[in-house]
Amino acid sequence: MAAVNRKKVSVTRILVIILIVIITFVYMVPLLFVIDTSFKPWTMIKEWPPRIFFKPSIAPYIRIFTARTVYPPGTTLTQEQIDNMTWYQKIVYQESNEEIVRRGDFPLRYLNSLIITVVSTAITILMATFAAYAFSRFKIRGKNDILFFILSTRMLPAVVVLIPIFLMFRKLGLGDNHIGMIILYTAFNLSFAVWVLKGFIDEIPIEYEEAAMVDGYTRFQTFWKIIVPQAMTGIAATAVFCFIFSWNEFGFAFIMTKSRAQTIPPWLPYQMGVLGYDWGAAAAGAVLFIIPALVFTIILRKNLVRGITFGAIRK
């Protein structure tokens, strides 16, 4: 009887595992389709039924990096002209009959995303580590109220504060400006970072600091030499979360930036090429854009629950 029971259990077990694998695969289909499209040759993108297997082409990635014009109909290039082309010019010419005229906007937008995200994350972490330490270790009058105030700023619908910020930044010359965006994203992430970091610092036994202070360390030295190294994992995890939030942010960037400081999220979905919306290039851009966030997610996986609940749940 027992043996039969065990067999039954292991059969259900295997069935459940198979089910999980199937679900995961189905779940990945939209993502896989985008990756698939980002390697599709020009002529196959608009085919019906959609083709899944084909000889992959790098052309969509060249197209997202460049601005091009179509050769006028009937133009035939001489063999010499074709021979003089660089490899990427040749690929684009052969696939979509286009001439590369200059570098596209994508690299600059990507760079904007990178600069704004990295700088704001660094400043957020610096400020938040200081604040979190103070909130964790000192008796501060009205501490819980201040902490709740800090949290509540994150829960606001962004648009309520966005209107005055827009007016204010316009006056200060911070509209469509890297510094303006860095200030915004720092403030946007600060509440989150303070809460999560406070949780991490709370977990460090206070005895370490007391011992160090007995040894003659000043308060700041204990903070810098004891707490910061101890909290490094937490600080790194929080930084990665701030990076992901800023990297993905759309609402602020959409309203505040038009060109000079524009990041990828408000730019990529609204790009019309000369031949209509270029889905291959868009898919390539999307893939390049989500790679950092995906890599960081994989690094973060142990701390995800903690991050998404603002440190409320520590697994």
Binding site: P265, P269, T297
Partner: peptide, 10 residues
């Protein structure tokens, strides 16, 4: 952890 607007685009 992807950008919502990019998820929309996808």
């Amino acid at each position: 952890t992807m950008s919502p607007v990019i998820v929309g685009l996808m």
